[in-house]
Design a protein around this nucleic acid. Sequence first.
DNA 1: GTCTACTGTCTTGACATCGAGATACATATC
DNA 2: GATATGTATCTCGATGTCAAGACAGTAGAC
Lengths: 172, 172
Amino acid sequence: MTDAHESLDEVDRLVAAWRTERPDLDVEPLQVLSRVSRLAKHLDRARRAAFAEHDLEPWEFDVLTALRRAGKPYELSPGALLRATLVTSGTMTNRIDRLAQAGLVRRRPDPEDRRGVLVTLTDTGLQRVDSAFSGLLRREHDLLAGLDEPHQRALAALLRTLLAPFDAGSSN
Amino acid sequence: MTDAHESLDEVDRLVAAWRTERPDLDVEPLQVLSRVSRLAKHLDRARRAAFAEHDLEPWEFDVLTALRRAGKPYELSPGALLRATLVTSGTMTNRIDRLAQAGLVRRRPDPEDRRGVLVTLTDTGLQRVDSAFSGLLRREHDLLAGLDEPHQRALAALLRTLLAPFDAGSSN
DNA sequence: GTCTACTGTCTTGACATCGAGATACATATC
DNA sequence: GATATGTATCTCGATGTCAAGACAGTAGAC
């Protein structure tokens, strides 16, 4: 599993620079965590490009997929949506407003709880998210082309371990 | 240590939901890439908390560390800084303005190129970034506690492979 | 029933970011 | 040495996010 001695990347250079400047510190954690951050930043850009073809912003996609995953009738409360997308309530209100204005979701009062609201995917929203999602998967598949399946599984397992404390702890 | 086969995490649930809703699609890429995105989001929050102790915002830290890594005299051009931090030029101008106002960096004209500017770390800036950095490393070390060293190295190698096409290609 | 504490959603103001374009200077070509 | 192209930085307007707090409604304890 430990080949990959190939070319040094940006993070290798960054770590080397730190070793020169602060030889007193153990900068090994950066080898993992800097790469996670940088990769996420690049992924955001790739996603943005993928969605542009379907006239969707990443934030729109995030909300619509949460609804899509919920299954029929594609309906969730704002609270459930913000927990699914890791944003604050103010942000979610704003997102729902704009999605509703774009005709991709609809708001209706929750019949069971008069404080509550339910957000539903419209037909247009459903179509848009479905086509954007297959486009995204195609691109993401390509991004992972450098790793064969066992390596992908190993990577996923390692990431799951790192993620575990967060998923367990916070709940936002 | 506990092998990671046990508890399902949020991404496992997400993947399972997609399998139910879209059994026609291969959603395996999400096992890796969703975890990268989610982990990055959690890391951002952890970093924010770590820096708050030193009165620094993450974006301030990003710029200051780039200068710190450059070594004496801790000086880089705005262009070099924006390439190091993956932000746009407008953002970098704004960041430098505010860092200069906070007394953490200084701007001076580049004597070799009259279009250019050089940004230098002040003594205050140097101290702040050094203490914030050791604080960060301590926390990041803890975040990685779930993986022993060989696993960490394996994870870093796998991430390097994914990152390679980006580091090579864009250069921003 | 009536407090009290909690929950779900929305409002507001501040803020960091981006993208596009403006400006000044540098470099290459002729 | 004039022109054209490229590079470095900054300006400006629009946008998405957050944090804190307001408000209406719910639920538990008594």
